[in-house]
């Protein structure tokens, strides 16, 4: 206890009273401080490898080589993964594109969308008689059988697979809508073929003429069929898986 007290008091006395030996110690401590600060600063600034030993440099080099190898392997793995993902995406896009095209053509067939394309405009005017439903239907069937992709009548009714025709007063009832003469049938498809299907001998043109009507065909480079139908889900039929 007394010795520790004396240690403390010696320290306090040294702080109060300088002596010759303290000057020597001070010089050496200044040297330590100078060198320490210099070393710390050098250590912080030194980003080059100039101060390293040969063995250290070799170790650094080995470490770098290992890191490079690992990184390269990682790069390879990641680019492989990227390749896989890309090809997967491409496949998905192709499938999506296919499905979209299918949807488009089904929409056209089902009459859900307005369509534009080359085709014919068939005008059936009643001059002396009344055009029968059967003859009118004949015209439609003829157009369909040569590949008309979309058909509308008088800009009012779009014809689809379920379309019905009946005789009405002063015209024909198509899907519940009364269509009055002159009937204008727009059909999109190969204009030449469609026109040919109307006017061949014994064809619909002749039948119409016999009933007292007048059928004219106009080939158009572009027809807009703007009438559409509501989508109707099937009530009873369900697709088999």
């Amino acid at each position: 206890m007394s010795e520790s007290e004396s240690g403390r008091s010696r320290l306090a006395r040294a702080l109060r009273r300088p002596s010759r030996s303290q000057a020597v110690v001070g010089v050496l401590l200044a040297l330590v401080g100078f060198a320490g600060v210099t070393q710390i600063r050098t250590n912080e600034e030194d980003s080059t490898y100039s101060g390293l030993r040969e063995q250290d440099l070799i170790d650094v080099l080995n470490g770098l080589a290992g890191t490079t190898q690992r990184t390269q392997a990682e790069i390879d793995r990641l680019s492989q993964e990227r390749q896989d993902l890309l090809s997967e995406t491409t496949q998905r896009e192709a499938a999506l594109e296919r499905t979209r095209r299918e949807v488009d053509s089904l929409n056209v067939l089902a009459g859900l969308v307005a369509v534009t394309g080359p085709g014919v405009r068939v005008t059936i005017a009643e001059t002396t008689g009344v055009v029968k439903v059967s003859s009118f239907l004949d015209v439609i069937q003829e157009l369909r059988s040569v590949g008309a992709e979309a058909i509308q009548v008088n800009g009012q009714v779009r014809l689809v697979a379920q379309t019905s025709f009946e005789q009405g007063t002063g015209g024909i009832v198509v899907d519940g809508t009364l269509v009055e003469p002159p009937y204008v049938v727009d059909a999109i498809g190969d204009a030449n073929v469609l026109a040919g299907a109307m006017v061949f001998s014994l064809g619909p043109a002749r039948t119409i003429r016999e009933e007292g009507g007048e059928l004219t065909v106009e080939e158009l480079a572009s027809i807009d069929i703007s009438t559409t139908r509501e989508r109707e889900g099937s009530e009873f039929a369900e697709p088999d898986p």
Binding site: A14, L15, R16, R17, P18, Q22, A23, V25, G26, V27, L28, L29, A30, L31, V32, G33, F34, A35, G36, V37, T38, Q39, R41, T42, S50, G51
Partner: peptide, 23 residues
């Protein structure tokens, strides 16, 4: 006292002169 001063002087000199360590 002088010893502590010496340490401070050394640190200050090191910070002030910023000497380069020979290779």
């Amino acid at each position: 006292m002088i010893a502590a001063l010496g340490l401070l002087v050394g640190v200050a000199l090191g910070l002030f002169f910023r000497p380069d360590v020979p290779l």
